[in-house]
């Protein structure tokens, strides 16, 4: 089976400086890959490259079988990105934000309420403007867009930041559900232990390159709790 993400010597510039300087990486279908590294190592740029938001200036880059250098919009339609900052409009309610994202993706808005309920945003919270929600609640709302869109590749930039224990468990559950439905997941993290526990492989970035790749413990934990088990925290 073709890899979902295939980068060979991928170089990406931010301004005139290379944020990625020759990245080689492959992500298989149904795989969860965590990306760790110090600030400025290139984690966010790597995810944004995979989302088709940052152009690859040289090297080979294919996501979901699409050449990123040829047709980035075709990739964007099929991936889901949870950025550092949730893409929400402060003046719209949580429900309106999700409905807008779904309609923009050409989907029906009916999926908004179940997706919000899945992340625990119901009742009054769903009708609260995003600007009035806490950071954790905003992140849940942004996650609900991914739940409703069900993209083939989930790209999560520091998804654990600002989440309490319950929300982290929820995130683990959502990742597990996404993988079960056939999606692949890449996420960045500053927390090396969480990254290892939640992923099949942990990629360490340094200076815009992949410095190390180690096995993660996600499958071992799944096996320990049984395939039907819930949290992989």
């Amino acid at each position: 089976m073709d890899p979902v993400v295939l980068l060979r010597g991928a170089v990406a510039l931010t301004g005139r400086f290379p944020a990625l300087s020759g990245v080689d990486l492959s992500v298989a279908a149904g795989e969860v890959v965590s990306v760790v590294g110090a600030n400025g190592a290139g984690k966010t740029t790597l995810l944004r490259v995979c989302a088709g938001l940052v152009p690859v200036s040289s090297g080979e880059a294919t996501v979901l079988g699409v050449d990123l250098r040829a047709d980035p919009p075709a990739v964007r339609r099929r991936v889901g990105l949870l950025g550092h900052a949730p893409s929400l409009y402060d003046e719209l309610t949580a429900a309106e934000n999700v409905r807008f994202a779904l309609r923009a993706a050409g989907l029906g808005a009916d999926g908004a309420a179940p997706a919000l309920a899945r992340v625990g945003i119901t009742g009054r919270l769903a009708k609260t403007v995003a600007g009035g929600l806490s950071a954790g609640q905003r992140r849940r709302v942004a996650l609900s867009v991914l739940v409703a869109r069900a993209p083939e590749l989930w790209l999560l930039d520091e998804p654990h930041a600002g989440l309490d224990a319950g929300a982290r468990d929820l995130l683990s559950d959502l990742v597990t559900e996404a993988v079960r439905s056939g999606a692949s997941v890449m996420f960045s993290s500053h927390e090396s232990e969480i990254a290892a526990a939640m992923s099949d492989r942990r990629v360490t970035m340094s200076g815009g390159r992949v410095a190390d790749v180690t096995s993660g413990g996600r499958r071992a934990k799944l096996a320990a709790v049984g395939e039907g088990g819930s949290h992989v925290a």
Binding site: A51, L53, G80, L81, P86, S87, L88, Y89, A104, A105
Partner: peptide, 16 residues
């Protein structure tokens, strides 16, 4: 409106 936190990226990734 679109320069808010991440909203521009959200619009681009939405496929609109």
């Amino acid at each position: 409106i679109e320069s808010g936190e991440g909203t521009r990226d959200g619009l681009r990734v939405s496929g609109i």
